Computed example of a mutant assay.
Amino acid sequence: MAITVLAKIKAKQGSEAAVEAAFKDMIAKVRANEPGTQAYVLHKVEKDPTTYWFYEVYQDQASFDSHGKTEHMKELGGKLGAHLDGRPEVHIMNEIARK
């Protein structure tokens, strides 16, 4: 069954452009290199432009595990480190049923 991830990321005020550029690069790399990723969607909170949410869906546990070990995931950490206001809040959910 699919694995869904909701990740809340808070950027330091003034770092929004750097964070968004890093995320857009990451999205392109995920699309090009991770066929087991069914959705990798970035959102910005309307009333708080420093808060972002990722909605991610992986076809299975192996795809999710592989995502975390990619070179582009490691690179993302290096790009974001100085621009984040705290650690991301990550919720991992296991799909139970689907229509």
Rank of each mutant, 00 (worst) to 15 (best):
Q59E: 15
P49S: 09
G78H: 02
S63L: 14
A82E: 05
A32Q: 14
F54E: 01
T4P: 04
A39V: 02
E75W: 11
V41F: 09
A28C: 13
T37G: 14
L80A: 03
K69D: 09
K69P: 00
E71V: 05
N33F: 03
I92S: 14
Q13L: 11
P88D: 05
N33S: 05
A62V: 02
Q13T: 14
T50S: 07
R98M: 11
I96R: 14
L76K: 00
T70M: 09
V41W: 11
A32E: 15
Q61V: 01
D85N: 10
W53C: 06
D60V: 02
E46S: 14
P88G: 10
E89C: 12
V90H: 10
D25W: 04
N94F: 12
K24G: 11
I27F: 02
A2V: 01
T50P: 04
P88H: 05
W53D: 03
N94K: 14
I9Y: 09
R31N: 09
F54R: 05
K29R: 11
I9E: 10
K29I: 08
T37R: 10
A18D: 06
W53N: 07
A82H: 02
K69F: 08
E20K: 05
K74R: 12
T51V: 15
F64P: 00
A32T: 13
K74M: 08
E46I: 13
R98P: 07
A17Q: 04
T50G: 07
M93V: 03
T51G: 13
A32H: 13
K8M: 10
A32M: 12
G78F: 00
F54L: 10
K8Q: 12
G14T: 12
D65T: 03
V41L: 11
L6K: 04
S15I: 00
A2N: 10
M1W: 06
A17L: 03
D48L: 01
P49D: 11
I9V: 09
H43M: 09
Q59I: 07
I27S: 01
K44D: 05
E89Y: 07
L80G: 01
M73H: 01
I9P: 00
A18R: 02
V45T: 13
Y52E: 01
V90Y: 09
R31D: 10
Q61C: 03
N33L: 02
H91W: 13
K12H: 06
L42G: 06
D65M: 11
L76V: 11
L80I: 01
P35K: 14
K79R: 15
E75Y: 09
D25E: 15
F54M: 12
T51C: 14
S66K: 05
G14E: 06
M93S: 13
Y52F: 06
A28Q: 15
L80C: 00
H91F: 15
D48S: 04
R87T: 03
V19H: 00
L76N: 01
A11M: 11
K10H: 07
P35M: 13
H91S: 15
E16N: 08
H72I: 01
M73P: 00
P88I: 01
K47S: 14
V45P: 01
Y55N: 12
L6A: 10
G14Y: 03
M93W: 12
K29H: 06
V45I: 09
A32I: 13
H72S: 02
